[in-house]
Amino acid sequence: MNHPETLDIKSAKTKYPVHELLRSRWSARAFADKALDEDTLRTLFEAASWAPSSMNEQPWVYLYAHRSDAENFQKFFDCLMPGNQAWADRAAVLVLSLAEKNYQNSGRPNTHAWHDVGAANTNLLLQAASMDIYGHQMGGFDRQKTVQAFDLPEHLEPVCFIALGYLDNPETLEEPFRSRELAERHRKPLEQIAFAGQLAR
């Protein structure tokens, strides 16, 4: 169930017109007690798979667990830092995104791998937003515990965890997360990030 007041607060207030899908995507923490079915989840991964990548390497790999699969879900949950554990247990699905560190043909380091995994994650989250599903990427996790818990091979490295689910009332969250859920979003002004020709000095 969506919450119109929250959606209105979180809708990006842009200076220039951008697509509604971009304006409506945001990193929610209040998730409803509603499952994501496997076909819906596969649709999100399908969207991720069509992201651009250097040399078409597609260096992304995803592991996931539904909350209904309590044992596996707990393994994902245990890798998160306490600040994320405070709310991520309500997610319908927890996802771990991984990057292939090397090019498949040459074995050379793929210095664009994390960028490309980020692009795939963005595709996933935008597809989710189009379906009224909300995602929250988390860099706050124990890297060593994650490598050990999932027995990751040397050529794969964890990039981030993603919590996915349908939106719930922010009142289900404790502070400070409730206030963050109801706060307007802001971005740096374009004058600080986009320059014609060269950096401003």
Results as ranks from 00 to 15, higher is better:
residue 4 P to A: 08
residue 8 D to K: 09
residue 10 K to L: 06
residue 11 S to Q: 08
residue 13 K to Y: 02
residue 13 K to L: 04
residue 16 Y to G: 08
residue 17 P to C: 01
residue 17 P to K: 05
residue 19 H to G: 12
residue 20 E to F: 06
residue 23 R to G: 06
residue 25 R to F: 01
residue 28 A to Q: 08
residue 29 R to V: 00
residue 29 R to M: 01
residue 33 D to F: 01
residue 34 K to C: 03
residue 34 K to Y: 03
residue 34 K to G: 02
residue 36 L to V: 00
residue 37 D to V: 03
residue 38 E to Y: 00
residue 38 E to S: 02
residue 40 T to V: 04
residue 42 R to D: 06
residue 43 T to R: 13
residue 43 T to E: 09
residue 45 F to V: 00
residue 46 E to K: 08
residue 47 A to P: 05
residue 49 S to M: 04
residue 52 P to V: 01
residue 54 S to C: 09
residue 55 M to P: 03
residue 55 M to S: 07
residue 55 M to A: 06
residue 64 Y to G: 09
residue 67 R to A: 07
residue 69 D to V: 00
residue 69 D to E: 07
residue 70 A to V: 11
residue 72 N to M: 04
residue 72 N to A: 06
residue 72 N to F: 02
residue 73 F to I: 00
residue 74 Q to G: 04
residue 76 F to D: 07
residue 77 F to H: 02
residue 82 P to D: 05
residue 83 G to P: 10
residue 83 G to E: 12
residue 84 N to E: 07
residue 84 N to L: 05
residue 85 Q to S: 14
residue 85 Q to R: 15
residue 86 A to Q: 10
residue 89 D to T: 10
residue 93 V to Q: 01
residue 93 V to M: 00
residue 99 A to K: 09
residue 101 K to T: 12
residue 102 N to C: 10
residue 109 P to I: 06
residue 109 P to S: 09
residue 110 N to T: 10
residue 113 A to H: 03
residue 114 W to Q: 15
residue 116 D to R: 15
residue 116 D to G: 13
residue 117 V to D: 10
residue 118 G to H: 09
residue 118 G to L: 06
residue 118 G to C: 07
residue 119 A to D: 08
residue 119 A to M: 09
residue 120 A to G: 12
residue 121 N to E: 14
residue 121 N to P: 10
residue 123 N to T: 08
residue 126 L to S: 13
residue 127 Q to K: 15
residue 128 A to F: 06
residue 128 A to G: 15
residue 129 A to K: 15
residue 130 S to F: 06
residue 131 M to P: 10
residue 132 D to A: 14
residue 133 I to Y: 10
residue 134 Y to S: 07
residue 139 G to P: 12
residue 139 G to L: 10
residue 140 G to D: 08
residue 142 D to A: 13
residue 143 R to M: 14
residue 143 R to V: 12
residue 144 Q to M: 14
residue 145 K to R: 15
residue 146 T to D: 11
residue 148 Q to L: 14
residue 148 Q to V: 13
residue 151 D to R: 15
residue 151 D to M: 13
residue 155 H to T: 05
residue 156 L to D: 03
residue 157 E to C: 11
residue 158 P to N: 05
residue 160 C to W: 03
residue 162 I to C: 03
residue 163 A to K: 00
residue 166 Y to R: 05
residue 167 L to K: 09
residue 170 P to H: 11
residue 170 P to V: 03
residue 172 T to M: 06
residue 172 T to Y: 00
residue 173 L to M: 06
residue 175 E to I: 09
residue 176 P to E: 12
residue 177 F to M: 11
residue 180 R to D: 02
residue 182 L to R: 11
residue 182 L to E: 09
residue 182 L to P: 01
residue 185 R to K: 10
residue 185 R to M: 02
residue 185 R to I: 00
residue 186 H to K: 15
residue 188 K to I: 01
residue 189 P to K: 13
residue 191 E to Q: 14
residue 192 Q to Y: 03
residue 195 F to T: 14
residue 195 F to S: 14
residue 196 A to D: 10
residue 196 A to F: 09
residue 197 G to S: 12
residue 197 G to R: 14
residue 198 Q to T: 08
residue 199 L to A: 02
residue 199 L to Y: 08
residue 199 L to D: 01
residue 200 A to W: 05
residue 201 R to F: 13
